[in-house]
Design a binder for these strands. Sequence first.
DNA 1: GCCGAAATAGAATATTTGTTCCATAAAGCA
DNA 2: TGCTTTATGGAACAAATATTCTATTTCGGC
Lengths: 271, 271
Amino acid sequence: MTDTAAPQTVEAFNDRLQGVRGALPKRLQQCADHVARNLDGIALSTVAELARGAGVPASAMMRFCQIMGFSGFAEMQRLFRRALAKPAPDYATRLANLQARGAGQPAALLAEFVEAGRLSMEGLARDLDETALEQAVGLLAQARTIHLAGFRRSFPVAAYLAYVCDKLGLPAVLHDGVAGLSHGAALQPGDALLAITFSPHAEETLALAARARATGVPVVLLTDPPASTLSSQADTILTVTEVDFGAFRSLSATIALALALAVAVASRRGT
Amino acid sequence: MTDTAAPQTVEAFNDRLQGVRGALPKRLQQCADHVARNLDGIALSTVAELARGAGVPASAMMRFCQIMGFSGFAEMQRLFRRALAKPAPDYATRLANLQARGAGQPAALLAEFVEAGRLSMEGLARDLDETALEQAVGLLAQARTIHLAGFRRSFPVAAYLAYVCDKLGLPAVLHDGVAGLSHGAALQPGDALLAITFSPHAEETLALAARARATGVPVVLLTDPPASTLSSQADTILTVTEVDFGAFRSLSATIALALALAVAVASRRGT
DNA sequence: GCCGAAATAGAATATTTGTTCCATAAAGCA
DNA sequence: TGCTTTATGGAACAAATATTCTATTTCGGC
């Protein structure tokens, strides 16, 4: 039987993993997938923990280790412990390295966006208006149907919310504007509208919000800071600032906020 | 006879260490010094190893742990493992946290998602395969038309890319699956496909990728780590790991990568 | 549907690792 | 120096963990 010598580096391990994965029976494939997803975790876990995470008995994980060329789990773990103990994969250093690439180099660009995203996240956590968030959760949790609206740059956020709501079992509809339809008439008393919009604000979103208010449907607005003009159009306003790099603004913080909002609403509803 | 409760953080541990160090007998001081020098190593060592490193018998190290306020070495090690393994904490515990705190505390939830997002970003910067990124930029920059595909959880990313490409003046089309149409025939030689997909992979995406390859259209895949099954279906694979909180995974890192990709392609074309 | 081979789960065992205990050595004190 | 207190090292013990073994199930080919 066998097989090649044990991998000596994490890269070699990965290669080998790719190589064998296809030919693996079900349980062992589960092991492979879970291991691939938690390379870091291996160094600190016990077989039992790792196996539980993969949803297999410990003995299956054991066989997996042997198929990978190790004498057992202990030997495999040693590999990952060495890798982890090595020069700490220092984030700051790595980022600096990437940024040092010439401007225009893809890796340098990425480093900048990553940094902008990280700053946005931190800003969100720092500046969050907890009262507004609490209020938004309350409004949405009571709604019969949650209407989601967002166009242009905001559309991905609305679409993501629609996906998450569906997963959570929340009754939500996405106003996606397909075929230029507005579905304003779908807003009925008892519902709620969650509108995502950044300046310059899309006409469609504002129109929908206005219509909601006219119908007595509460409006939660997720927007960027100069929110004064919109204050009359919403019951609750959540603001989020995205740090930009060049002319480009990411959505990291907005999406994190949206996700938290959805999960909080689902939890409040008592799913 | 414990003087104080066990430190709960590495900082508290350090404080305590400074505090007691002076009043320690020789062997225990050796322990203190060696531990202070190898804070990282503690998570990965056994008592025996650590003791050997300090030049003392295991029982001395044991007494040291107890003087520091822990019940023993195991408890002390847990502290450092938690600190080291932040990115991959125990899944079950976190899910329990989610359920316990989510009910009354949307802000706490948000904090978790922000933290997960931040870690994902750092992971992206750390683990990025620069060669693959470079290659992906090259492929997409040469394309006549860039086809964007992503369904379910990946859809928001594809949609965001479509928005950004439009802003950048890149010829891109979004395969959004409206009306159940696949638009596979739109893939023509000279084009390129950028497909975003996470396991469990959507059938539509895989089908589109297969069709692209059959047509000689290069495929760039943006996906999560166990990418082995897909390796035959793509010319370049970019992997990105999103740290999850509970059952929920954000898109922060994926979107940052997508944005960087788009901007780099635009820059490459413009030059 | 039957058969043989492969895969699997869980119990049984081996090993490693953590922890306690105590006899001895060292240090402080009169 | 003799006595008491404290520290020390190593061996004995306990717990956790890895590993192997085997009865049972599953799967693929006839």
